[in-house]
Amino acid sequence: MSSNKIKWSSWPLLVPALALLAGILLVPLADTFIRSVSAPGTYTNLLTDGVTMTVLWRTVVTAATVTVAALLIGYPYAYLMTRVSPRARGILLVIVLIPFWTSVMARNFAWIIILQDGGPVQSLFAFFGAEDVVLYGSTAGVTIAMTQVMLPFMVLPLFSTLGGIDRRLLLAARGLGSSPTAAFWKVFWPLSRGGVMAGVILVFTLSLGFYVTPALLGSPQESLVAQLLAQRTTLLLDFAAAGALGMVVLVVTLVLVAWANRMGGTVSAIGVVAASPPKDR
């Protein structure tokens, strides 16, 4: 009885958080949905508009490319973090967290300098004879910069998951005759899929709505969905179409998160990922 009273008496503590959530998220979402259905045929026009569908497809492809690149870079990095000494692990963790401590605008302007015409990257390609490579103002340049920005969102969930895997399972597999490669794919990889799914969904969903990097490094001819939303709200004042597009992106995000949770990945807050470093086994 006393336990139930304690539980019920704790519910009022949620009121400030729920009020804040309703004020800054639920109310604007409801207003956006109402605007999107206020004009007849908004969703039909959205799905039949060639320009909008092209931008949506380009956004999905870019987000998928960024996700794959972040996974290919982040998985070995996170694995290395679980194998080194605590001091080296701390250094590697600081390197991952540096983007969080740097202004988004500063990072993007740094990428502009790196990728611009005559910049270091183009000079490097020209040195090897590829003088026609242009990254600034292209989807390729946006993808490279977004991968760097999104990499921590892949590394931290992976680090949390990989650090919790018992290495003795690999030794047991080796003792039963498995090669190192077979032991990794049959033992280690299946146990790490939860962290992989969490990182993939975090990076992919954040990439779908990313605005600053595509706006600064991309071009209007190769815009992504966030740029299209900004154009329809600030220039065209077409709030109904912008709301419908935003709701479509939201539904896609919710479906992906639900699918990730069903597949065994959990999309949780990454702030506690590094709270307890893995023990060396």
Rank of each mutant, 00 (worst) to 15 (best):
Asn4Met: 09
Asn4Ile: 15
Ser9Met: 14
Ser10Ile: 07
Val15His: 09
Ala19Tyr: 04
Leu21Gln: 02
Leu26Gln: 08
Val27Tyr: 08
Pro28Tyr: 15
Ala30Val: 12
Asn45Arg: 11
Leu47Trp: 00
Gly50Phe: 00
Thr54His: 00
Leu71His: 07
Leu71Phe: 07
Ile73Arg: 03
Tyr77Phe: 11
Pro86Ala: 06
Arg87Ile: 14
Leu93Glu: 13
Val94Gly: 13
Val96Leu: 14
Ile98Ser: 02
Thr102Met: 08
Thr102Leu: 14
Met105Leu: 15
Arg107Trp: 12
Phe109Asn: 10
Ile113His: 02
Gly118Gln: 04
Leu124Gln: 04
Phe125Gly: 15
Glu131Asp: 09
Val133Thr: 03
Leu135His: 02
Gly137Tyr: 10
Thr139Ile: 07
Met146Ala: 06
Pro152Gly: 03
Phe159Asn: 15
Leu162Thr: 13
Gly163Lys: 10
Gly163Leu: 10
Ile165Ser: 06
Asp166Pro: 08
Ala172Lys: 02
Gly175Arg: 01
Ser178Pro: 01
Ser178Glu: 09
Ser179Ala: 04
Thr181Ala: 07
Phe184Ser: 07
Phe184Glu: 03
Phe188Glu: 10
Gly195Ile: 07
Met197Ile: 06
Tyr211Gln: 09
Val212Trp: 00
Pro220Leu: 03
Glu222Tyr: 06
Leu224Lys: 04
Leu224Tyr: 07
Leu229Lys: 04
Ala230Thr: 14
Thr234Ala: 03
Leu237Asp: 02
Ala242Trp: 14
Gly243Asn: 04
Leu245Val: 06
Gly246Asp: 10
Val252His: 09
Asn261Ile: 01
Ser268Val: 11
Ile270Tyr: 14
Ile270Trp: 11
Val273Gln: 05
Ala275Leu: 15
